[in-house]
Design a protein around this nucleic acid. Structure first.
Lengths: 257, 257
DNA sequence: GCACCACTGG
DNA sequence: CCAGTGGTGC
């Protein structure tokens, strides 16, 4: 079983990249973030020939998540159900062949002094409670997405420069780790604890890609019984080097199921 | 001698189309309108390999004219010199090998009830006086550009529907004809009085090109001694069918000199 | 840097 | 429909 995740940074702009990647890699499931498209504008037609079931929830301008799967999900859940703030099309949970899969686009947070950062930290707390409510750490489950957190120094270039960055600041890493403590294992770290491999390179730093100044902020996590069966995890850098790329690239994991 | 004109509708977006066309057609002179680029942003580098002298005057957002010529102009004049309103980078006169060439992007006029339309009509009056002042109808001279006037019924699809259109309204045609009366001959009409051939197809009408619902509003005119030597005039529709086209296409004329 | 938005212009 | 502008977000 092959699972992939990709922050597409506008699906309408990147539908060709996504279709090409699906053709070549044929994952069972692809989680997309930052589709940036309202449901009424979702490019279903351009993806139709790929042969994937498509589950999506978007809004105008910002955020938006989608799950493309070879099998039709038997259940679909949109957003948090905690009665709190709307989650702005950042969370999608599907169940496919009995396996729950959570796809998240976690708030970036802007600056550590910003209310947006407090919202990010709170979002992780809500997510921890969401896991408590809907999943069991003892049963197979997956959590994929753009977490906007680089969990370790190795996961960001020049970590010492980014101690106050919203994606590396202590509080953000702790908030993220608190969700992991529920029962998630990062399958990349599990298989390759010493490997440095980024998934995101900022458009703004002109040579960020050439100089490999990136961040590992997109992650695939699994509960213990599934994590044990993870046999391979890869970042495919090629789409980041393509014409008109997203600032992120694809991360995928293979499970012996 | 081959002379061409093209409303490029943003030179920065169309620099590839222009360079390709120059390579294939090698005109002696190409007049461009609606370059929509400030002089400081003019894409000189992207055009450098074509081997043309480049004369230009632009502004932010709107208008902008340029002349590309195989020979360096011995004189260059920007705008009207009548002490009136600034001409907004709509008029450029060069002298190349002794031949005066005027390149104009005539105001469109918006609506016939608009002050912009009055400005258009006045612009033609100023242009007539400009010809009086700087040129002789008895000496070779060229006037090329987007005139925003379809002079005859055959020059617009469904003329009866466009009687109040700023590019076909009686007053606009009269204002244009008053400049012609100074001593200009439309070389297209001169050679092919019955040919229907448009140079502009609106982006907004989705099938304007497929249904050939266009306008002939780009023109090449010559004074009598030069017009007599015009041997061929063509509209090249191909660039209008290219990817990311301008809404206009190239018009060119060949003179036996 | 590169998406998005709303707006203006033709 | 497709340019341009300025603004926001990451």
């Amino acid at each position: 079983m092959k699972i992939a995740t990709f922050n597409v940074n506008s699906l309408r702009k990147r539908v060709g990249i996504v279709a090409d990647w699906l053709e070549r890699h044929r994952p069972d499931v692809l989680c997309l973030q930052e589709t940036k498209v309202q449901d009424s504008e979702f490019p279903l037609l351009a993806l139709a020939s790929c042969g994937y079931e498509i589950t999506y929830r978007g809004m105008k301008s910002y955020n938006g998540v989608a799950v493309l799967s070879r099998k039709k999900p038997e259940a679909v859940f949109h957003g948090f159900d905690d009665g709190g703030d709307p989650d702005e099309a950042r969370l999608l949970r599907v169940v496919i062949g009995g396996l729950p899969i959570i796809n998240t686009y976690v708030p970036q947070g802007y600056e550590i002094t910003s209310p947006k950062y407090a919202y990010k930290l709170g979002w992780y707390e809500r997510l921890r409670r969401y896991c408590d409510k809907h999943l069991s750490p003892d049963a197979p489950a997956l959590w994929c997405g753009d977490m906007n957190v680089a969990p370790r120094p190795i996961d960001v270039h020049s970590p010492e420069k980014h101690l106050k960055h919203v994606c590396y600041h202590e509080d953000a890493r702790k908030a993220y780790e608190q969700v992991l403590a529920w029962g998630w294992q990062d399958v990349f770290i599990r298989l390759y604890p010493d490997r440095q491999q980024y998934t995101f390179w900022d458009y703004r730093a002109p040579s960020s890609l050439e100089a490999n100044k990136g961040w590992r902020i997109d992650h695939i996590l699994a509960t213990a019984p599934l994590a044990e069966r993870c046999v391979r995890v890869e970042v495919d850098v090629e789409p980041r080097r393509a014409k008109d790329p997203s600032d992120h690239t694809f991360l995928w994991a293979e499970f012996s199921i």
